[in-house]
Design a protein around this nucleic acid. Structure first.
Lengths: 210, 210, 210, 210
DNA sequence: AGTTAAGCGAGACGGTACGTCTCGTCTTTTA
DNA sequence: TAAAAGACGAGACGTACCGTCTCGCTTAACT
């Protein structure tokens, strides 16, 4: 089992666990945690714009130098802070009972649920920061989304193979139609993203049997 | 009848055209244009982060005061600058020949085409700026997207009524599935947004007859 | 009797009274007064720094253009506003009874008295403004002080001739020693300028007989 | 024993020298010097009005923040810049040979000499700035003048005690009569302040024996 | 036990944008 | 033609954050 899914940008964190006991004073784990917690807290509480490096340093009682030492940029820190919290929050697609269509329905509903809380707000802020700095959210995709999307695409494909999902378009397209819809509505505030809507959307796109 | 579609944030722009000849020196049209053109040019050329109010003032030879007088915030200016250009670029859905499904297909393809150029880049930057400052892109939706979405939703509904579109979900959901997919893929850089993909997506979601 | 002692800088004021009935709308006397009154009021009430052209325009309900039309600069306006009020307030040296020394003593005491009120504050502000803009207060001297100094110097000289003033230095030097002392103490806030101090100073410098 | 005579406004300057080795990066001495030198240079060269914080920052290659960090206001900086230069330029009253009256004569002549150069111009500008901002030049007095005045007053009093100065008024009054005269003439540009005039003034006021 | 390498907090610093302010000029309409 | 109304360019104001830099103290591994 992997402890980290390769998502962490900060240098050194994994090295510490691995092999060679480095010379000098080892990196303080509490400090790293304090930074990430503070970053997440500030993002959630005061919004993205107010989550400056200075503010994180103040809130966590850590010097700016220490932050700059381990994270190359603001978006890197924000992504790490998001992952630090989100990893547990929105688990990978459930392997639980039911048809693949039912599982897809459950996952979409859970995601819709999560979007309505703090998670949605912070996620969007992080994505926005990536876009602002790099022109797109590819970094966020690579570090967080891709893994989840791949898993769900595979789930849909499997449903197509066993006949429980009747839509015959590429599974990627089906996934994007579902989660793209949810994301689109969320970003533009078109309507509240309810679990019910998520479920109806899955049925609309996947056309499950029965 | 108003010429503008309610998209302009800057105060007074529309009042000037309408009725009462105001007292005092009238607002300079060239100045307004210079500001908007400069803002768009800078957004496209140097990116959103470099498109500061100071930079726009420098580039357009306009004083900062004048900009702050007519636009309450940076995002307001950026949206206006975007609209100023985009209005012509991505016209409303065509009223041209063919079934409603064919017209929807054409519009989606045109949008996909546009996304690949400068337009897509700038649009995304503006949306991201809105999110950064206000927490969501509702402002962008209200000033730009809503009008277009409403028109296309009506087109889809009309296709459903005359039977050329077989999908029987609410037209809004169908629209969001199409354009949400395009947006999602674009934001996360999942794949190039080709006109072909846009057309296949329309067929997948709307299930046109024949 | 002279109405104005040639102190006014603003153009046109005297033309209005004199001869030729000019073409077009005549200059409004109330406007001129309103400007000067407002300028003085603001100087006394809010201090010199807050007495901007904009503030005067606002307070007097006169357009900025009108002020700029008649006064070439801020200090010109401030001097005029000061003269407008001060001319009556601190009259020329009294021609009343007593020896020249007694009259000098009385005038110095009256000046000391005046310095302690609003007059002192405004006068100093105007002088300071002249220095800030032109490097010295020569303009203030030429328009206000010189006339008064000349009169008093002559009074002292007359006292020297008739023997009531024993000091034998040039009368200018004696005048400057008295009023320079008062001014110096006032500017640097060394001590309150009391009439008693002014009188003792006159006696110290002039050494009157008896 | 402190080297400085309490004239410096900038915080921390003296603390650095004293005792406790402070934490963090120590304040840069070159930076402080560059700021003061630039401020003085600009005052002398371009006048007080042009000596803005921005201009000082540009000229000294120092960030505005750094200036604002150490000086609370423009006048504070200007006074410090003046003191920085003036301290050497116009030394305290000489302890050299001769009677007290002769020494007073020499000091007055030296002051008159200095007034005619750049020093007089800058000094007056600083005083004017104090008046503009605070209503009087008490700040300038407290930080610069008082110390010198006290020393000279004591010198005059000593001359009175040993009989070399015959004037029997309070020594403060005598000092103010001399330096007030010089200041008055200088401010209003009544006449050039020559060393000869200064010496004759000392004789007029102090009436030295012989 | 002493040395050495790195972690870390405190805080100075140059740079740059922020949003506000006043100045003095300019351009209209109204009287 | 005077005056009011108000747009405008210029540029200083004081603040904030950025990312870099010196310091000096602390902590552990290595000698």
């Amino acid at each position: 089992m992997r402890k980290e899914t390769g998502l962490v940008i900060a240098k050194g964190t994994s090295d510490a666990a691995a092999g060679a006991p480095r010379r000098g004073r080892p990196r303080s784990v509490e400090t790293t945690h304090a930074i990430l917690e503070s970053a997440y807290t500030l993002m959630a509480a005061t919004g993205l714009a107010a989550t400056t490096i200075d503010a994180v340093a103040r809130h966590s009682n850590v010097s700016k130098m220490t932050i700059y030492k381990w994270w190359p940029s603001r978006e890197a820190l924000l992504i790490d802070a998001f992952l630090h919290h989100a990893a547990q929050m929105l688990p990978l697609p459930p392997t639980s009972a039911g048809t693949q269509a039912a599982r897809a329905r459950r996952h979409a509903a859970a995601y819709a649920e999560a979007l309505q809380g703090e998670f949605g707000k912070v996620q969007l802020a992080v994505i926005s920061e990536c876009i602002s700095k790099t022109g797109s959210a590819e970094l966020f995709y690579a570090r967080y989304l891709q893994f989840r999307r791949d898993a769900l695409v595979e789930m849909i494909a499997s449903g197509q193979r066993d006949g429980s999902i009747q839509a015959d378009a590429p599974a990627e397209d089906l996934y994007d139609a579902i989660y793209g819809s949810l994301f689109y509505r969320y970003v533009f505030g078109i309507a509240p993203i309810t679990p019910a809507y998520a479920r109806s959307l899955v049925d609309l796109v996947l056309r499950p049997k029965g």
